[in-house]
């Protein structure tokens, strides 16, 4: 069955002139998840999203949204998608309410639905009382209105292109909270290079590098796969750190800390500590951060 995946991309290729931006990208996004699409600036995130939206033509490969093929030009699958561009622009002579009514009408929603849904969405993004025209809106307000218009028609898939990158910490927090709330009703793909955002709200992630997906899975899976078996041992006496690192060929990271990378040596090391009565402050498994994984994966290539 294809409908378990809201979005399926197979062998996607795209180049601009000589520059190959996507080189055989494969991606599957399951339903009702917040999916983080991570990559450096210029890795091809926005290009991928525009191809999914049918705003550009691909050179090779196939994209299916809710099981239907995406076509460039008049793209029918857009009815399943809500889209929030990185810097959303609106008809600035309208008020938020008018803009949402306009969006509802072009999507073909009926009048009552537009009214109730607009109010609901504007409340969700905190613009419920806003009566002014969009003209004077701040970036954060525009971004929030962007989410409201993207969610208006209850899309199966919400695509957000770096929704938090241009915002201040408070604005970012607001957007992330709104996205988490939106997860109840839709699948969210969310491109970013801010890894802490991914860690906060995403269920799954894919890492894009040089036009290919180099890693994909749930946040825990990705972390587990890359969790080294390293242990960090902090000793009470600095001299012991030297002794230990010499006896077991350990990496000494500072005066009183050493790293044990080979897990199989742990029992022997513990025995040694006990036999030699070496006191230690702590011994803990090293946590990997997404940053480490990101740098690792991109550095390898």
């Amino acid at each position: 069955m294809t409908d378990r995946y809201v979005l399926e991309i197979e062998g996607l290729e795209k180049h601009f002139g000589d520059k190959k931006v996507l080189r055989g990208l494969n991606l599957k996004v399951p339903e009702k998840k917040v999916f983080g699409f991570v990559g450096r600036n210029g890795a091809g995130k926005t290009t991928t999203m525009k191809l999914v939206l049918g705003l550009m033509a691909q050179d090779k490969g196939e994209i299916r949204v809710a099981g239907e093929k995406v076509k460039y030009g008049n793209n029918k699958t857009n009815k399943y998608i809500g889209y929030l561009p990185d810097v959303p622009e609106y008809y600035s002579f309208m008020t938020p309410k008018e803009y949402l009514r306009f969006c509802g009408e072009i999507t073909g929603m009926d009048k009552n639905e537009i009214r109730t849904r607009s109010e609901e969405m504007l409340r969700l993004v905190g613009l419920g009382e806003e009566k002014h025209r969009i003209k004077g809106f701040s970036r954060g307000m525009k971004q929030r209105l962007g989410i409201a218009q993207a969610l208006l028609a209850k899309p199966k898939l919400l695509i957000c292109d770096e929704p938090t990158s241009a915002l201040d910490p408070l604005g970012r927090k607001e957007i992330l909270e709104i996205l988490v709330a939106a997860k109840e009703e839709t699948t969210i793909i969310f491109s970013t290079h801010i890894l802490s955002d991914v860690e906060h709200i995403c269920d799954e992630m894919a890492l894009l590098n040089e036009g290919r997906i180099v890693m994909q899975g749930s946040i825990d899976e990705v972390k587990n796969r890359h969790r080294g078996d390293a242990f960090e041992i902090r000793l009470e006496r600095k001299a012991d750190a030297g002794i230990l690192s010499e006896a077991f060929k350990l990496e000494r990271i500072n005066e009183d800390r050493v790293i044990l990378k080979d897990r199989s040596m742990l029992p022997e090391l513990l025995r040694y500590l006990a036999d030699s009565s070496i006191p230690f402050v702590s011994m803990e498994k090293q946590e990997v951060t997404l940053e480490d994984i990101f740098i690792d994966a991109i550095g390898e290539k």
Binding site: L53, L55, G73, N74, N75, K76, N78, K79, I81, Y83, P85, V87, P88, E89, Y90, Y91, C103, I106, T107, G108, Q149, A153
Partner: peptide, 16 residues
């Protein structure tokens, strides 16, 4: 120039 049509097209309004 403003990019306002992107939102309209991605909402499924046909270009025609």
């Amino acid at each position: 120039q403003k990019g306002t049509l992107i939102q309209v097209v991605t909402k499924g309004l046909s270009r025609r």
